[in-house]
């Protein structure tokens, strides 16, 4: 089973999904993220799905679960880069991902987290002020 790598950039955890996920990998990713958020004290999670060509209800539910999970650790989650065909399909499927923030691309996702007061660390805050 492939595990999806989780990168830490300042106070933000970045998950970039590059493979066709099995259900087990999805569950593993949820567990890994929960552990990583609590271990690092990260305040934001960005899930980049620009390389993902299908999101079914199982994967869609993962986004919602990760968002609720991270909220328990006072972290915000942004899903970025959803392709048009995937978005249209999710709507038709009946999945609207309520409570999950979205952004067009990685850059804007990061911006949203910063706008929410989630820094990429102390250095960033100091420079920005």
């Amino acid at each position: 089973m492939e595990r999806v790598p989780i990168l830490k950039i300042g106070g933000i955890l970045l998950v970039s999904i590059q493979v066709d996920l099995h259900d087990q990998s999805v569950l593993a990713l949820q567990e890994d993220l929960a552990e990583k958020i609590s271990a690092t004290g990260a305040h934001g999670v960005v899930i980049d799905i620009s390389a993902v060509d299908i999101v079914d209800s199982f994967i869609g539910r993962m986004f919602a679960t990760i968002a609720s999970l991270s909220r328990l650790f006072d972290a915000d989650t942004v899903v970025v880069g959803m392709r048009p065909a995937v978005a249209i399909t999710l709507v038709e499927l009946g999945l609207t991902l309520d409570g999950v923030r979205t952004a067009l691309d990685l850059e804007r996702g990061m911006e949203i987290l910063r706008g929410l007061g989630v820094g990429t660390g102390a250095t960033f805050d100091a420079r920005d002020a």
């Binding site: 060509d53 299908i54 999101v55 079914d56 065909a85 249209i88 399909t89 499927l93």
Partner: peptide, 12 residues
Amino acid sequence: VDQTKVVTAASE
């Protein structure tokens, strides 16, 4: 779009 729809349905 139709590819994505049918693949998603198949996945479910």
